[in-house]
Simulated scan of single mutants.
Amino acid sequence: MAGKLAVVFGGSGFLGRNVVRELARRGWRVRVAVRRPHLAQFLRPMGAVGQIQLTQCNIRHKGSVREALRGADAVVNLVGLLFQSGKQAFDSVQSTGAANIASLAAEAGIQNFIHLSAIGADPESDSLYAQSKGEGERAVRSSIPSAKIIRPSVIFGVEDEFFNRFATLASYSPVLPLIGGGKTKFQPVYVDDVADAVCEALVRKDAEGRTFEVGGPRVYTFRELMELMVSETGQNRILAPVPFPIASLIGLFGEVAGKLPFVEPPLTRDQVKLLKRDNIVSIDAEVGTLNDLGVEPQSVESVLPTYMVRYRRYGQFSETTA
């Protein structure tokens, strides 16, 4: 793909930086569209000199999106939110924002389009997160029928917001909450595997117009993931089941705390709603998987020890590491 230009929206995030690195490694020129380019300078050394550009863009403003798309051969939309804060709302980012990018890409004649969604995306969902993801998918398909949609399960890796968050909580709390008893099922997928899936989908003709649900090689319950995490960190913690009604109340307090400056809510009511449904790859024959994109998924057990070491009492010098 030497010389081809891919525009990546949301390229400075956890998944985005891995996608940018992989695109550059495969020979693409990459333009990263972000709200604050001065905070994304760390992306430039991921490619050759001049291979990775940064441009200011707010996906709620069509003018900046149109400018970011100028001269592009392909588009990757990775913009998403875990919780709402101020103007960064689910509908304005994951629904309207996705619609803006897709409609303007179609207007510019760009058909090679990747849209990152999530397992469970559904316009009729009672979760605002899943609802906006579903609306975003529908808007993308309406503008670009050939678009490829990728729905990952929980993404893990060195800078993830899943294992790191709970390992940090376990560092100062003797108790870890198991929402709904910890029975919800997940199929965690390694961030590098998702980045490979994005890059493969860009160049595969048989991926056009398809939806792919990507997960790792094994399904776990939430309890099993917490047990695996505390085992790797050497933290002896109590895993306490928390019924959904109580979790919703905790989520309400979390939302109130999240309105304070520089405070991320530890849990929201919308996240509790998501935890009532399993987050695993569908068995629908029409939905593609990592295997259909030629990607062999890596297991949690093979990757987690490489970055949980920092939470052990003596880090790399702990007896567990030795």
Rank of each mutant, 00 (worst) to 15 (best):
T268C: 10
P241M: 13
H38F: 11
G120Q: 03
I119F: 09
E286R: 12
G10M: 01
D126G: 00
I155R: 01
T289D: 04
L5N: 13
E296S: 12
G258W: 04
R141M: 05
V295S: 10
A118L: 04
G11D: 04
S299M: 06
D278H: 08
G3H: 07
G182E: 08
V158L: 12
G209Q: 09
Q94I: 02
E208V: 07
I250T: 03
L202K: 11
A247P: 06
P37I: 06
G86V: 03
Q51C: 10
A2K: 15
N18A: 13
A201K: 03
T321S: 12
G234L: 11
T96I: 11
Y172T: 10
P37K: 05
D278M: 05
A105N: 10
V76H: 10
A195K: 13
P152G: 03
V8K: 03
L176G: 00
F186G: 00
A139S: 14
Q53N: 10
G157I: 07
G80T: 02
N77W: 01
E227A: 12
T306E: 14
V263R: 04
Y220V: 06
I101C: 05
N100Q: 09
V20P: 08
R210L: 13
F9Q: 11
Q41E: 15
G80S: 04
P261E: 13
L202M: 08
A240Y: 12
G11H: 00
G3I: 01
S231T: 14
G50L: 11
K148R: 15
W28M: 09
N100C: 09
L228G: 04
M229L: 15
L293G: 00
A139M: 06
L249Q: 09
Y307R: 10
G254N: 04
V230K: 01
R25K: 15
V8W: 06
V7R: 02
G16T: 06
V191R: 04
K276C: 03
V219M: 07
D91F: 08
A99R: 14
E135I: 08
S125D: 14
G109E: 05
D206E: 15
T221L: 02
R44E: 13
R204P: 00
D122C: 11
C199K: 13
